[in-house]
């Protein structure tokens, strides 16, 4: 499920694949991603695209994600 889509990068984060490991949040230089308040269907904490407009589409988050949860188009 795409949370939010940026006009510039089209970043999408699938909250049902996400396990909240935070490796993407840590690697993002522009603070586009942040932990969500709730949990997903699996009961896991997850990450949301909080500031899609700031995303440059560099793809570092995609490279670090162990769960193929982020897509940049």
């Amino acid at each position: 499920m795409p949370e939010k889509t940026s006009h510039r990068s089209g970043i999408k984060l699938d909250k049902e694949r996400c396990k909240g490991c935070m490796l993407c949040v840590e690697v993002c230089q522009r603070k586009v991603l942040e932990p969500a308040k709730g949990v997903n269907k699996k009961g896991m904490g997850y990450v949301v695209v909080a500031a899609a407009g700031k995303c440059s589409g560099c793809g570092l988050c995609v490279m670090m994600c162990p769960d193929c949860g982020i897509e940049i188009s």
């Binding site: 049902e16 694949r17 396990k19 909240g20 490991c21 935070m22 490796l23 699996k42 896991m44 670090m64 994600c65 162990p66 769960d67 193929c68």
Partner: peptide, 20 residues
């Protein structure tokens, strides 16, 4: 990768290597 979410723990390296 198939669509199925993996059973790996959060932050496990297997998922990254699988994708690569």
């Amino acid at each position: 990768m198939k669509q199925a979410p993996t059973h790996y723990c959060p932050g496990c390296g297997h998922g990254i290597v699988h994708r690569l």
